[in-house]
Design a binder for these strands. Structure first.
Length: 223
DNA sequence: CACCAGGCAAGTA
DNA sequence: TACTTGCATGGT
């Protein structure tokens, strides 16, 4: 392993250990975007159920959801949790989509990345992680997505400060890695996989590049 | 039973 | 500015 770039070494170790994670499990950019909003602080299993019921409603298009009353939308996405507030967030996004791009996802995705990021952050209900997930996984721009696992794992391993901001962490990852959409896609997915896998089912994972007790959370967590 | 999940915004001091 | 709280279902 090269001594110079731990971030790339860790990526290669995780990829070798877990294999490709095949994110994002959405069939279209539209589905990826809806999933990105629904999965906020929520398990992907619950989001899949919500997306399935949206599809079953026959209204899983920008126009269909835009016309649907928020109360009806909330019931369809019930399984994803926070359904009232997420129905509003979906509506806020759809209003933006119709206001700025005539409801055309492809047109939105052709927008300049920096401008689109700024606009997405201006939508109530879309924060940095959701915006970057849309940019990376739907628009396929090379931008690194930071999440709670990233912060927990890398700060406890001493690679980043415990009080680092989202922007600081993103800058560091992007400074240390090649600007490659596929790599950023896979790395974020591998970090999430690592957090899930080692926090729960596999506490004695010897061959894993990151150690179990360094990223536990809850009352037994290390600081 | 407690705890967590691919966050974000609003409220409080 | 710096914490805290609400949002809510479903799995382990």
């Amino acid at each position: 392993m090269g001594r110079g770039n731990h971030f790339l070494d860790i990526y290669n170790s995780l990829l070798k250990h877990f294999g490709p994670q095949h994110w994002w499990p959405g069939e279209t950019p539209f589905e990826v975007i809806i999933g990105a909003i629904l999965t906020q602080n929520t398990s992907w299993d619950n989001v899949e159920k919500a997306i399935a019921s949206l599809k079953a409603s026959g209204k899983f298009t920008p126009e269909g959801l835009f016309r649907l009353p928020a109360e009806n939308l909330a019931q369809l996405i019930r399984s994803s949790g926070y359904f009232n507030i997420k129905a509003k967030r979906l509506k806020n996004f759809l209003s933006f989509l119709f206001d700025d791009y005539e409801g055309d996802i492809d047109r939105m995705l052709k927008e300049d990345g920096h401008i689109l990021r700024h606009k997405l952050l201006n939508v109530n209900g879309i924060g940095p992680e959701t915006a970057d997930s849309i940019l990376l996984y739907a628009a396929e721009h090379p931008i690194f997505v930071i999440d709670a696992y990233t912060k927990r794992i890398f700060s406890r391993h001493g690679y980043i400060d415990a009080d680092a901001t989202y922007h600081q962490m993103q800058e560091l990852f992007m400074k240390c890695l090649p600007q490659d959409t596929c790599l950023f896609n896979e790395y974020h997915a591998l970090i999430v996989r690592t957090g899930k896998e080692l926090c729960r089912t596999n506490p004695h994972c010897d061959s894993c590049p990151v150690e179990y007790d360094l990223h536990k959370k809850g009352k037994n967590a290390i600081k």
